[in-house]
Amino acid sequence: MIEFERVTKKYGNVIALDDVSLSLEKGKIIGVLGANGSGKSTFLKLIAGLVFPTKGKVLVDGMEVTKKISGKVAYLSELDAYYDSFTVQDMLEFYASQFSDFHKEKAHDILEFMEIQPDKKIRQLSKGGRGRAKIAFTLAREAPILLMDEPLSGLDPMVRESIVKGLISFVDLERQTIVMTTHEIDEVEPLLDEAIFLRDGKVAERVHVDELRETSRDSVVNRLKKIYKGEE
């Protein structure tokens, strides 16, 4: 369980998150959605222990988040941070050396599913190849919480589909929770249990995706647009 208790995060004078309180249940796939600069990445980084609240508390399983949280939380960055001269296999070994919950066998299965050859150098991979490799290394950790910052961003539709299918195939929702930010809402919507809409650092709304469809006959994309147009 992830809890935000009146969390405010400022970078200098800029407010990234503004007095956010909520809790996220286990075993769900949760989308954090909103415009650029709405606070999505900060939301994830606070759970990952990469940044800390200016005010308030972030708790994971009842414990306040510190840098040590990386044992429980797998974080997929929006950025590419790999050594070009490494092969995919080197990268896999590196992850295995850093995280005790990293499963090499599972990593190989996922790479195979995503059609990435382990002997390739990172620099030889296309952008889509690097995107898939990143997902594979994140999913190969048996961490209870998986955080993904824009996992589909800038990738072609075939790669996006392969990532979505890889995610469904390899996540274990009996023991894992995924929180992801994305702008590719159409594609991700069938994956989401819940959506959290952020606007200007605040939670504008939070919905169960199927309930939204059932009661308002509305899709997540439409809802987001309405929130930003101020129709709500």
Binding site: I29, V164, K165, S169, P190, D210
Partner: peptide, 17 residues
């Protein structure tokens, strides 16, 4: 549930439901 989720591209929790 998993096979169906992958085939349809849908959250396994949804298929369970």
């Amino acid at each position: 549930v998993r096979e169906m989720a992958v085939q349809t591209g849908v959250n396994p929790n949804t298929i369970q439901r």
